[in-house]
Simulated assay, not measured.
Amino acid sequence: MERRSFLRGAVVGTSAAAFGFTLWQGAASAAPAQPGPGPYGALGPADSNGILLPSGFTSRVIARSGQKVGSTSHTWHKAPDGGACFADGPGWIYVSNSEINPGGGAGAVRFSSSGAITGAYGVLSGTRQNCAGGSTPWNTWLSCEEVSRGYVYEADPYGVQSAVRRSAMGRFKHEAAAADPVRRAVYLTEDESDGCLYRFLPATWGDLSLGTLQVLKAGSGTSGSFTWGTVPDPDGSPTHTRNQVSGAKRFNGGEGCHYANDTVWFTTKGDNRLWQLNLASNTYELAYDDSLVAGGSAPLTGVDNVTGSASGDLFVAEDGGNMEICVITPDDVVAPFLRISGQSGSEITGPAFSPDGSRLYFSSQRGTSGSSSGGITYEVTGPFRA
């Protein structure tokens, strides 16, 4: 089976930051990732925020739903979900969706070069159940509606331009998006038990107003080759987009999506899998499957959002499970990186690294209350691998 090897390298510019800071290449032979010692060591006791971290790492609370962010006048949204970081001069911005229906939208927190909160504001409003999404090479945020025949909205993380609905990207139960500057495509997951994986090919790269929506076609197995078929009616009515193309491959609950160096990684929560799409060879395979873990003691369950770091590590957040973010290394080892205690009624969302790779942002969507009004957004700082 085609598997992965990685070429490690430094981050170059803001466009690299937008893709999760990884420089990866595929080719090696191994089984899907298995449990083993993580690169950061064992988790320590819970800190004052209830987070278990490896030695050398610390956490802080950035925002809480219904409360003002830092000393700003902006109230943080309910049910924080998908997120991404954007360079902002010497500082950066973290954008986070709100998975509320109706209401939705997205908010942003601005940081100085030292990590101090210098501002917070809304970047999208009046939408429905904005779950995940993704950043673009031209530094915009794609916010995805996780409702039947939902839309993708393109928002300005800097809060200057008004958000724009991108109807050409299709109407379906959107989840996440990942941009590929090589093939000039945006990959899109669909959160349905019989959902599909799509790509959108803009007529002009950098302009998502017009283009072609396609769906991945492949056999029913967990590995093989794939092709793309054009969706005749991206509006999805009366026939859903996933049912318009013969041979479209089905995925059980598409969730997170991440692109780096000719590879797309995406998760399916219905079967706790991480998939690998090898774009150079037009092949796909499993990178992780909790049912294939030796001994049945899978450290990663409730597979959900995914992002990557400069070292080539993947960080996968759990929706449920035991509220962990797990790391999957280039050597196909999976291990817990952090755990949130006392919040079993929540899920971890929106993992994203600061542009320099030294800080990881994420949210507990429902916090200790188990309610969408109790969301908490965190930052973890420490010696992440370069």
Rank of each mutant, 00 (worst) to 15 (best):
G312C: 04
L124C: 03
P90N: 10
S291N: 10
C144E: 13
A116D: 15
E145H: 00
Y378I: 05
G50P: 06
V61Q: 11
S59Y: 04
G254R: 04
V306M: 05
G170T: 02
R128M: 11
L292D: 11
W275S: 00
G320S: 00
S55I: 12
L23Y: 11
T14P: 14
W265I: 12
L277F: 02
A120D: 02
P90T: 13
A280C: 09
G370E: 08
S193P: 12
D271G: 01
S346Y: 04
E175C: 05
S223D: 14
I325T: 01
V123A: 06
D331C: 06
G254F: 04
I340N: 05
W205D: 13
K68T: 12
G367E: 06
Y187G: 01
S358C: 08
G253C: 09
R242V: 05
S281M: 07
G367C: 06
P80N: 06
T239D: 06
A185L: 13
T377A: 11
G345P: 01
G374L: 10
G104H: 07
G36H: 06
G219Q: 02
G350R: 00
S237M: 10
S246E: 12
A185G: 00
F226L: 01
G350P: 01
S71R: 14
R8Q: 13
N282K: 14
S65W: 08
G342C: 03
H174L: 06
Y151D: 14
Y198V: 06
V245E: 03
S344G: 11
C85A: 14
G105R: 08
A176G: 05
V152T: 12
F362M: 05
P181S: 13
R4L: 15
G26N: 13
T329Y: 09
M169K: 09
G170I: 05
P137F: 10
G236L: 08
L338I: 02
E347H: 01
S291F: 09
A120Q: 07
F19Q: 15
S281P: 00
G50Y: 08
E175M: 00
A294F: 04
T241F: 01
G133K: 05
Y259Q: 07
S65R: 03
H77I: 12
G38D: 07
S291T: 15
V327D: 09
Y121F: 15
G82E: 07
V152E: 02
S369T: 15
G91V: 08
W275C: 03
F362H: 01
G133H: 08
A178Y: 02
G9C: 10
S125Q: 14
G206W: 05
R171E: 12
R110M: 03
S372N: 14
